[in-house]
Design a protein around this nucleic acid. Sequence first.
RNA 1: GGUCAUAUAGCUCAGAGGUAGAGCACUACGUUGACAUCGUAGGGGUCACAGGUUCGAUCCCUGUUGUGACCACCA
Length: 881
Amino acid sequence: MLDKLFDHAQIEPRIVEKSKSPVAQTVKSNVKSDTFTITLPPPNITGSLHLGHAFTSVIQDILLRFKRQHGYATLGQPGIDHAGIATQIIVANQLRDRGINWQRIGRSNFIEQVWAWKEQSGGTILYQLVRLGMSIDLDRVRFTMDDEASDAVLYAFTQLYKDGLIYRAKRIVNWDPILKTAVSDLEVSNKTENGKMWYIRYPMGQNDFITIATTRPETLFGDQALAVHPDDERYKHLIGTNVRIPLTDRVIPIIADECSDPQKGSGIFKVTPAHDFTDFDVGTRHNLPLMVIMDECGCLNDEVPAEFRHLPVSVARDRVVNALNEKGLLEKTEDIVHSVPHNDRSGAVIEPMVTNQWFLETKKLADMAIKAVEDGHIKFVPEHWMNTYFEWLRNIQPWCLSRQIWWGHQIPVWYADNGKMFCARTEEEAIRQAAKYFDVDVTQVPKLTRDPDVLDTWFSSALWPFVTLGWPNSTDELNKYYPTDVLVTGFDIIFFWVSRMIMFGLYFTKKVPFKVVYINPLVRDEKGQKMSKSKGNVIDPLHLMNKYGTDALRFTLATLAIPGRDIRLGESLVESGRNFITKVWNAAKFLELKGGTFGECIDISASSALGASNEQGGKVSDIVTLPLNQWIIQKLFDFKKQSKSYLDEYRIDLFAQSIYKFLKDTFCDVYIESVKTCDDEESKKTMAAVFAEFLKVAHPIMPFITEFLWNELGGGASSSMLLLQSWADVPDVEATQESTLVEYYVSVAEEIRSIRGIIGVKDKLALFAKSNANDEFLLNNAHWLKVLARLSSVEIMHNLPAEGIRFVVQGQEFCLKYGDTISAEVFEKKVQALQGDIQRLTLKIGNEQYKQAKPENWDADVELKKQKEWELAKLQAYTCP
RNA sequence: GGUCAUAUAGCUCAGAGGUAGAGCACUACGUUGACAUCGUAGGGGUCACAGGUUCGAUCCCUGUUGUGACCACCA
């Protein structure tokens, strides 16, 4: 006996436990050659489950379960990411809180601390994902810094180095003076701030000067030139002459460069190649020296006059401005609003600075990646995200790979004292290379020093889809599961991750890493705000799961998986999701009450009699005789077909909707209500069969309740778990006459209900139907029509009574008798509605071109108009009290 | 400055070239063989605006406006 409500807290853990082995098994299975693979985006080891994870995960799991049910060898590859900078910050802060300075304990001690922390907290999120119903095998969890992944990273790096795509260069990068590392331009976000524009006079000759505008006066010590536009009449004559940098004795030239915009500022700009991105390019064009005037902490260094040395930028700026002012070299100051680059993670103001870094030449890789999508080898869902992808790749810059932090994959390059580099997967190999280079025995090689930098976290992430399957070794798994099928992720990491996986996938494996990129919407709060800890509007998925059940949360998220639109999630939505789960539960209770079980039900699977006869144009009447049962089975087939096609198109939202509609509108509202009037075996068995099929279809979205009911109502007795039950085969059957008539009388019932609303009568009504070819059917099926339409009796007549409300459905006349009266108001309303319809139809029918363009539609409209006119006439014939 | 998305009921959002839909909220009624975490019914929309294509546009095209996001620039 089922309880009053579904007790998710009790049942969910049991189902999780029970599912482990079959989930793991389906990965190993070699029965079927078809595979389906999703590499789960590895969450950070610092992470805990938030709604964004929950949402992405549910979408992935729905796809995984759907495919697994259909017999695919299904792999959802789990893993976690070492998240270089993010993790280093967290562990450093933890040490600080314990009174330990992370820099002082040294690199190897620090890394030991991170590993310890990883062991302790890493992976919690994976258990949370399993609670969410993710059908993944935790024995397969990989880590982006495990031994295999590390080897793969070294392999990839050395390969790219050998191919000449990786190089070390002194170039301008985004420098974070707090973390003391380079960061990628993707990690930099610009914040709009109030600032000032200073107009500074650069002395020229004896008494003359030239004015330039800048927001960064403290960088003037690094200036190498002033630039004007070659066609700017105001300054043309100055090109080639010199000016003196204020506060110094250094003299720099005035140069001509196209990129100077006469409209901006004073039309002249100072060129500081070592500390500004555009200036770097100008400097390169004009062979200007790179003079770095800052240290790694963002303080001015010894290149500047003594009084400004070792000052942080902000302090130095004020001092420089004051000094300029005192010397009369500050012309004016303007308040402006401008954007300033920040690092989100550390909060630091980014200083563009020239440093030695490792770069990856990306142009060729990007071209390959662009082509793969252009040629349709990779599809984006929704498609428009392609544009974002293309836009970035077409303007791609070299990828700065190196980070000056400790936690990560250390760059596999060793230096000899003379600066010679040896790139190798191991130190031994580097020594061998050095021995060859120095032409000495390996034991005689001078001391080599390994590059202290580590790789950008996304380097290892970019290899993830194939590293998790054993690459660079040619493993069975790699051959079987790669390329993977779908990548589900957020639009915010299209640049960081998606495009880089595609580049590396194509480069290293010569194959696309995945065939479809499903970009899922961003989860926001009820007001449309981005959820964030600082705003305090974060909804904890664990809270929702505890309160409403995991199935409720999954169902709710699924209904919201609308492509191309951010979703707003409030608790009330999950509540209505929970209500639907309860509805499923209650339908099961009714089936149980009726004595229906899955062990004894009509076999409507593909192998059944229907399936066999289907080849000869089988009909549902071959397996059930009662019209109601034929009808519901036909509805079920439609539902299954529709559901599958929605999932094939990644319309998870419509899939959820079709589950909702079938269960509620079709199965509960019509079928269960009608079947209450039937006490025969066939109906019981049909109901059981249809509900069993429903559970199969609904399973990917609500695995817990469906699995439980499957077992509870006898499905588990004869076979394995629901998660392995296929609902793939849907026979293509023609509607039987009986089921068509059921459909028809259901619509008659709907019409009666709406009339009842109009006349405002609640009592049971007597229905008279004009005799026609369906008389016998109507008599035999009046029992359920009476329930659906709340009728006291159904009678067939050749001449309908003169009194009562007349209506027509598809040409058949009906009359409803009632004791009450119609109020003048509702009567008038109905008349107006009919008149409006008739007027609209008259106009439409009068359109000669319409008649010619769509004759079938036109005929239907003519018929419809006749009916409406008839109905109106009957209504008006009725004397309104 | 560039790109993309988006505008439909009080709210959150589906939708199709030919009568505008759901859920929530609201109103009324209701415990009739599962279900009050419910049922039955109801009110409520110039489908942002302006052009164009079409016999017909809320839907397709163009433009405008609002909103959101991303990229770039920022002397």
